[in-house]
Amino acid sequence: MKPSRFHLSLALIFAALVVIAWSVRNDQGETVLSVADLPDLPAGLAPPPMVDVTVPDSFSNAEAMGERAFNAYCAACHGTNAAGQDGMAPPLVHPIYRPGHHADEAFQIAVRNGVRAHHWRFGNMPPIEGLTRADVTTIIAYIRALQRANGID
């Protein structure tokens, strides 16, 4: 097996174990797994980004706050700069997530309630614990800035 396929295989196994652990904990009525519970993958095992993302030269204050919150709560699955991670979670810098198709409230609902898989084959997204509506609003501002910088309006 090539080293790159080996690393991808390990990353996929790790992702499956995280999903199984979340399911078991959730079925037992215990606290839902939070992103903070996920261990960092070694750089060589992290799945590759799914899209190339152009990052704006600067962000507004709200967008910069959103970038920090995104990195803390979302990047473990959705990747650096919301570029997605093959086998983990989709890119949010993608025409599917443009404002005309996924309004800002869709992101709020996804974080609060989780999302049943419908556009991609990554499985369901669990609710994300520890984020307020205001936090998610800044994350949305960051994602929208990235989308605009990549021609997604």
Results as ranks from 00 to 15, higher is better:
Ser23Cys: 10
Ile128Thr: 06
Leu92Phe: 15
Val136Tyr: 02
Ala46Lys: 13
His78Gly: 00
Thr138Gln: 10
Gly44Leu: 11
Arg68Cys: 04
Ala145Tyr: 03
Ser34Trp: 03
His94Gly: 07
Ala43Asn: 10
Glu105Tyr: 10
Asn71Ala: 11
Pro39Ala: 04
Gln85Pro: 07
Val53Ser: 02
His101Ile: 07
Ala46Arg: 15
Val24Ser: 04
Arg121Met: 13
Ile152Val: 13
Thr132Ala: 14
Phe107Asp: 00
Val53Thr: 07
Val35Ile: 09
Ala16Arg: 13
Ala83Cys: 09
Pro126Trp: 04
Pro47Arg: 00
Val32Ile: 15
Ala117Ser: 15
Leu8Ser: 08
Ala103Cys: 06
Ser58Asp: 07
Cys74Ala: 15
Arg25Pro: 00
Ala106Gln: 05
Gly66Asp: 03
Ala46Asp: 15
Arg5Met: 13
Ala15His: 07
Trp22Gln: 04
Gly151Phe: 11
His102Tyr: 11
Lys2Ile: 14
Thr80Met: 14
Asp135Met: 06
Asn26Leu: 01
Ala149Thr: 10
Glu67Ile: 00
Val115Pro: 00
Trp22Ile: 01
Asp52Leu: 10
Ala82Leu: 07
Gln28Met: 05
His78Met: 02
Val55Ile: 10
Ile20Ser: 08
Pro49Val: 01
Met88Gly: 00
Ala106His: 08
His119Val: 11
Asp37Asn: 11
Ala149Gln: 13
Thr31Ala: 05
Ile109Asp: 00
